[in-house]
Design a protein around this nucleic acid. Structure first.
Length: 272
DNA sequence: CCGCACCCCTGTGCGC
DNA sequence: TGCGCACAGGGGTGCG
């Protein structure tokens, strides 16, 4: 579910309430997707205080005072919610009990997501993050454009490739391509510099707008307090195949690119 | 490097 | 009502 804006909203919400809290205990409710056993995970984090909560690509990071880091990848249906202690629910996977008695719960219906604990210095050696490209909101559109202009792959696939640019998923790829008037099957080396820079400027706009609106909630996404986002009400193309384009009125089409449904307007985004 | 198939899981919505 | 299929915010692998 969560792409960059959703993880960013969760990180900001958690930062506001978790800094200074100490992890008192870990409950590995469903250890099937843990990369280590619950005792090993607990040994790295129990007794440590939260220093900061941040995000890199689509990964949520909780930095601890002992130098360790908790990393959550939410994949399609993961949630990280903080609130009062409550009984275990159906999709709870790993629960953290804090020193004030509150609960930080990682839940994930489909169990694609995971949580990992890194010892001090370990995060920097995590190959997943080492391969991730630049943050789109911290990088000038011209620099981002340079990463796709020499590529022969389809621009939609390039946007989804975390090594090209970090944090973009199916929603924001489709929305930014529509805003830029670019067909998802256009090859990177056919965009032209102006087109590529326009695309990444629109990507920045749509990501910022989605963060401001608390993210997009399709089915599962909720922020750190358990609240839904609102940006799904602003979708121009995502999930709207067969509906009229809000800009020109043409009926929206969908094609598969990189194995993902890509919805586009045949008039605003003409065939390359 | 590119594109595709398939896998990891569970749930929902739709056509028959 | 029930069944079977397609599809879902992600990412990894393996093959041609």
């Amino acid at each position: 579910m969560p792409e960059l804006p959703e993880v960013e909203v969760i990180a900001r919400g958690l930062h506001a309430v978790l800094v200074g809290r100490v992890i008192a205990a870990v409950e590995p409710v469903d250890p099937t997707r843990l990369s280590e056993d619950g005792a090993a995970l607990a040994a790295k984090v129990v007794g440590a205080g939260v220093v900061r909560v941040s995000r890199r690509a689509k990964v949520l990071l909780i930095g601890l005072g002992n130098g360790a880091t908790l990393a959550f990848h939410l994949k399609m249906t993961g949630r990280v919610v903080h609130g009062p202690m409550r009984p275990v629910e159906r999709h709870d996977r790993t629960r953290f009990i804090l020193d004030d008695g509150s609960l930080l719960c990682f839940a994930d219906m489909r169990r694609f997501g995971y949580v990992r604990a890194f010892a001090p210095g370990g995060l920097e050696t995590w190959d997943f993050l080492c391969r991730v490209g630049p943050e789109p909101l911290d990088t000038p559109p011209a620099a981002l454009a340079g990463r796709v202009l020499s590529r022969s792959g389809r621009i939609k696939a390039l946007l989804l490739d975390q090594a090209v640019v970090a944090g973009v998923g199916n929603i924001y790829a489709d929305e930014s391509l529509h805003r830029a008037g670019i067909h998802p099957q256009t090859r990177g080396n056919r965009l032209g510099r102006a087109g590529a820079e326009r695309l990444f400027a629109h990507l920045q706009d749509v990501l910022r707008q989605a963060i401001a609106e608390n993210g997009s909630s399709i089915r599962d996404y909720v922020n750190a307090s358990g609240d839904a986002g609102a940006f799904q009400n602003s979708f121009a193309v995502y999930g709207r195949k067969g509906s009229p384009c809000a800009v020109c009125g043409a009926i929206l089409f969908a094609v598969k690119v990189a194995g993902r449904t890509s919805t586009f307007c045949p008039r605003c985004q003409p065939e390359p």
